[in-house]
């Protein structure tokens, strides 16, 4: 995915605030790029432009050479499940636009629910589950959906520490079997180190790239106790 000179601004109190100005970034196919930067710098705006939730002012986003509004999976900060439907329905309903047969949708939904260990809760409603389980269901939904791009907007942020690491691990395991081009917005450098192939550090508004680090250690071997992993991010980098 090539993001080329993307620009987006907002009008606030009659003042023009430039969030993105000629922002460019290349994400290799089927790799995870983590975007780390101060809050409010425009990371979420970038994801919203890619997912077409917002319109860009100028610039292009191309996927393997062509500019198209691709199918995108989005993991939000909150699970955003439909409260009136069971987990299996929550995962199979978005599949309607891609699979004609109900049987096919159900099988796919159940397959991914099993992958996140929620098979036995397939007929439970979201409010009957814990926050961590709901986010796991959202992860299952984003992988079950046949997209070529995956956008993660701090999806582990609202969970407590233990749960967070177990979910990061779960995501990483699932990702290795179902790869796709992924942008991972976070302000937690440790999450980025565990998941990303490339960690991109960003400046304040208007957002710019101030550093980029490639991580060669295979995902399944990474640990936060490993000094060689932690040393990858320059000690000078302090996250505000």
């Amino acid at each position: 995915m090539i993001i080329d000179r993307l620009t987006r601004s907002y009008i606030h109190d009659e003042q023009r605030i430039e969030v993105l100005k000629d922002f460019s970034l290349t994400v290799e196919v089927d790799s995870i790029v983590a975007l780390v930067g101060p809050s409010g710098c425009g990371k979420t705006t970038l994801l919203r432009l890619i997912s077409a939730l917002e319109q860009k002012e100028s610039g292009t986003i191309t996927y393997q050479g062509e500019e198209r509004e691709g199918s995108v999976s989005y993991l939000f900060q909150e699970p955003r499940l439909l409260p009136w439907f069971t987990l299996v329905q929550n995962i199979s309903i978005p599949l309607k636009s891609h699979f004609q047969l109900k049987q096919e949708r159900l099988e796919k939904a159940l397959e991914f629910l099993s992958l996140v260990d929620l098979y036995e809760f397939r007929n439970a409603y979201p409010h009957q589950l814990s926050g961590g389980m709901r986010q796991r269901a959202a992860i299952a939904r984003s992988f079950a959906y046949p997209s070529h791009t995956m956008l993660l907007d701090e999806p582990f942020q609202s969970l407590d520490a233990d749960l967070r690491w177990s979910l990061v691990k779960e995501f990483s395991r699932l990702y290795d079997d179902h790869r796709r081009t992924t942008l991972f917005v976070t302000h937690d450098i440790q999450e980025a180190l565990l998941l990303a192939d490339t960690v991109v550090q960003l400046s304040k508004r208007p957002m710019n790239i101030i550093g980029s680090t490639e991580i060669k250690i295979p995902r399944e071997q990474r640990s936060l106790r490993d000094p060689s992993l932690l040393s990858l991010i320059a000690p000078s980098y302090t996250y505000p």
């Binding site: 909150e78 439907f85 309903i93 978005p94 309607k96 636009s97």
Partner: peptide, 24 residues
């Protein structure tokens, strides 16, 4: 609004948006 955004990202059809989001 959050669920509406979710339905947009996951390309819900007009009918699906009505049936699974608006009506309930």
């Amino acid at each position: 609004k959050e669920l509406v955004e979710m339905s947009k990202v996951y390309r819900f059809s007009r009918y699906s948006r009505l049936r699974y989001l608006l009506v309930p």
